[in-house]
């Protein structure tokens, strides 16, 4: 990846962060922390890695993305808007009566949303189904998933992880958004989930560990996953919850609340300053 390209992607990620803050502020509720932590992964997937066409969102050979941690919906919607699936102006209707942009993603309402999620732990199973279907039909489709670290306390994640390996789903790649926080506190305090790489390796996955905000590292991981045959790849993406908004970073409280108008201004000011430095 050229430096110029990396910069372009970083700008997109910052624009996604801007939309996350603006839409959650307009909604008066939502989940900023875990939305901001996945912005760089989403950017790399949608603007560099995935074979998709926003003009033809049901193209059978397309790659699929499943946001298993559905509360990061604002980041997914912002990404889909950047990619041209939905109008950017629509983002401020998030969580409002009559809006397509439900609090958690609904595949029947938003083009580009491949699976409705929100009840945690279920996205990987659905992604397995998509990866199996692609293999049955000999399609080039690859399936990408983001799961949360808190979400990994759900047993179904581990049921599904066994399926992915048993079915040799090398067309499947999972990002673990390892930001270390959940609603009630740190993962370590609530129900510790240490050394995820070892856990996933023990389940038979090809495991990588990267800085989840380093776009080049994210891209390289995707390339390595693509080249890995016979088993699925899981990336432990070390991330910062609230990344990009200094007063939200690593603060548990910003899991699920909207900033005030004043706080939003501060957040937007900061993101725009970073954006300016990337020009």
């Amino acid at each position: 990846m050229t430096q110029e390209e990396a910069k372009k992607l970083q700008r997109i990620a910052q624009n996604i962060r801007l939309s996350v803050v603006k839409s959650i502020t307009a909604a008066g509720s939502g989940h900023p922390g875990g939305s901001l932590s996945v912005a760089d992964i989403l950017t790399t997937l949608y603007f560099k890695v995935m074979r998709i066409d926003s003009k033809d969102p049901t193209w059978p050979d397309r790659d699929r993305f499943v946001m298993s941690k559905g509360h990061a919906a604002p980041a997914l919607y912002a990404t889909l808007a950047e990619a041209g699936y939905i109008p950017k102006e629509e983002l401020i209707t998030l969580r409002k009566l009559g809006s397509r942009l439900q609090g958690h993603p609904s595949m029947r309402q938003v083009p580009g949303v491949e699976m409705s999620t929100g009840s945690l732990g279920q996205g990987l199973s659905a992604a397995n189904g998509m990866a199996i279907a692609a293999k049955l039909d000999n399609r080039p489709t690859r399936v990408y998933v983001i799961i949360g670290d808190g979400e990994s306390q759900e047993g179904q994640i581990w049921e599904a992880s066994m399926t992915s390996v048993h079915r040799k789903l090398d067309n499947l790649m999972v990002f673990l958004d390892y930001n270390g926080l959940q609603i009630d506190g740190t993962i370590v305090d609530v129900k510790s989930f240490t050394n995820p790489a070892a856990r996933w390796e023990a389940f038979g996955w090809h495991v990588l560990e990267i800085d989840g905000h380093d776009i080049e590292a994210i891209y390289d991981a995707c390339e390595e996953a693509r080249a890995t045959k016979g088993r699925p790849t899981l990336v432990v993406a070390h991330t910062v919850k609230g990344k990009g908004v200094p007063f939200m970073e690593n603060i548990v409280d910003w899991h699920g609340k909207a900033p005030s108008g004043e706080q939003a201004e501060e957040a937007i000011g900061h993101i725009e300053a970073v954006l300016g430095s990337l020009m």
């Binding site: 659905a126 397995n128 189904g129 998509m130 279907a133 179904q156």
Partner: peptide, 8 residues
């Protein structure tokens, strides 16, 4: 869940 992904 897998059935859902297959159906999708």
């Amino acid at each position: 869940g897998t059935a859902a992904g297959l159906a999708a």
